[in-house]
């Protein structure tokens, strides 16, 4: 419906243009018009106060709620180049792997920020990206404040859990509902691993230098985590994760019942809400008082 209305507007505009002398070219827009194809970067842009400059987001953006009123222009695999151009952006945040889109935007002289998904040093990468975006948009002070707040909050939690014993944990981010099949866990790099370590957890898969891996039943039994944090942001849901895991009684977490299900989509996005992820992990592993003591 919206598309049809826009088409109509386009036809009317074209007809109007035919009927009278072409108007002089509008002056180049001076205000920032930002498009983000990266949900994590969208959250960063809002966090540094650039939300009002956003003119479009990717089809996967869900946060903050303000994105719901913005047009969608595709994502990693299917960016809508024409739509992006038509919105006359002054900056487009793209994935660094989107070679073709970057080349086409370059040919159209549209400034681009290439977002790199960092596996190593993922936590430090978030505030660094925010500062870089702040520089590009002339919002250095706001970016510095937001980035510094993230670094400070994570550091305070690190200090609170520093003296405590690391809890051997598996972070599971995929599993077939009602079964112990297709188990995907966080490996020894990436933001989930680093968030877990910052929160005083010890990733039982830390030696496997991958962001994610499929863990067989045998591997889960052999690594024997004391806590299982299960992130379920999409797909089927279990009536009881405890019941599903209970079949592997040799895993300490299943015997003590320390299996925690987290369903908020924020756990799949390495953005400014990383603080919330670290806090939640710390609360699960070491209790509320640790998080309370770390302050806001």
């Amino acid at each position: 419906m919206i598309a049809r209305r826009q088409l109509l507007a386009l036809i009317l505009a074209a007809a109007a243009a035919c009927g009278r002398p072409a108007p002089s070219e509008p002056a180049a827009p001076t205000e920032a018009r930002v498009i983000s194809l990266v949900p994590a970067a969208t959250e960063m842009l809002f966090a540094i106060g650039a939300g009002a400059d956003m003119v479009a987001v990717s089809s996967f953006d869900r946060y903050p709620p303000e994105v719901e009123r913005l047009p969608r222009v595709g994502a990693l695999i299917d960016p809508d180049f024409e739509r992006i151009l038509s919105l006359r952006p002054t900056l487009v945040v793209v994935y660094a792997s989107q070679d073709e889109l970057i080349a086409r935007l370059g040919a159209a002289s549209v400034p681009v920020y290439q977002y790199v998904h960092a596996a190593e040093g993922a936590l430090a990468h978030i505030p660094r990206t925010m500062r870089e975006l702040g520089q590009l948009l002339g919002r250095e002070a706001a970016a510095e404040e937001a980035a510094g707040a993230i670094e400070g909050a994570i550091e305070r939690i690190r200090q609170q859990v520093a003296g405590r014993e690391r809890v051997r944990t598996a972070v599971v981010f995929g599993r077939e509902a009602g079964a112990l099949r297709g188990i995907w866990v966080a490996g020894g790099v990436g933001f989930l691993h680093e968030a877990l370590e910052a929160a005083g957890g010890g990733n039982v898969f830390a030696d496997i230098r991958r962001e994610g891996l499929q863990a067989s039943t045998e591997l889960m039994l052999a690594r024997a985590p004391d806590v299982i944090i299960e992130i379920r942001t999409s797909g089927g849901v279990d009536a009881s994760p405890l019941e599903a895991w209970g079949r592997l009684a040799a895993i300490p977490a299943t015997r003590t019942g320390r299996i925690y299900e987290l369903t908020d989509p924020l756990f799949s996005i390495p953005g400014p809400r990383i603080v919330e992820i670290v806090r939640t992990f710390a609360r699960v592993l070491h209790g509320d008082e640790v998080v309370a003591a770390a302050g806001p």
Binding site: S216, T217, E218, L221, A222, A224, R247, L248, A249, A250
Partner: peptide, 10 residues
């Protein structure tokens, strides 16, 4: 028995 569980369950 972790070894038995690995053998018989995995």
């Amino acid at each position: 028995n972790l070894d038995a569980q690995i053998f018989f369950l995995a």
